[in-house]
Amino acid sequence: MTSIDPSLLLSNKPSTKNTGSSNLGKDEFLKILMTQLQNQDPLNPMEDKEFIAQMAQFSTLEQTTNMASMLEKFINIQTQGDSIIKYSEMIGKRIEWKNSNEETGTGVVKSVKKGDTGFELEIENGSFISVDNIIKVSNADS
């Protein structure tokens, strides 16, 4: 009967650790492709079809990377809590506000600005109201 050497069993093998990224990025892909081109056999060069296929893979990888980057930027813009565009919809609207001293007022929004403490709305008399103090928004003609 033949016995199996225990050193050949997978459970007895030391574990290996990967020291690098397991993701192949566009820079690494291009380096591999250039190395492959530089070290190819001059008597048996790479087929045109193979080269075109690899370039198409590289182009696809680059476009996918660009699309992922743009999508990430788009998501960041969409998920930001406060933006001047969000408050620009209030221009021309009538607002009512109440400040920390319980003083109230109304006015039509003329412009929006980002101040040191947050966004502020300028009303027709030239004063600025913090968006945190707004209690009602309505059409200016109502």
Rank of each mutant, 00 (worst) to 15 (best):
K98L: 02
A56F: 09
K49L: 01
Q57E: 09
Y87D: 02
M67E: 12
G92L: 01
I77M: 11
M46S: 13
N76S: 04
M55I: 05
R94A: 08
E62W: 13
A68S: 15
K98N: 06
E103H: 10
M70K: 14
S100G: 00
Q57I: 01
F51Y: 08
I95G: 02
D82H: 11
M55A: 06
N101Q: 08
A53I: 04
S59M: 09
S88W: 00
G105E: 03
I75G: 05
E62V: 09
N101M: 06
N99A: 00
E89A: 03
S88L: 00
E102L: 08
Q57F: 04
K73Q: 12
E103T: 08
N66W: 12
W97K: 01
S59K: 13
K98C: 02
D82A: 15
N76E: 15
T64L: 13
M46I: 14
S83E: 09
I52R: 13
Q80L: 09
L61R: 03
Q57A: 07
T79A: 06
M90N: 06
M90F: 05
E62Q: 15
W97H: 00
M90V: 10
T104R: 01
I77R: 12
E96Q: 11
S69R: 13
G92W: 06
T65P: 02
I75H: 12
Q78W: 07
Q57H: 03
N66Y: 07
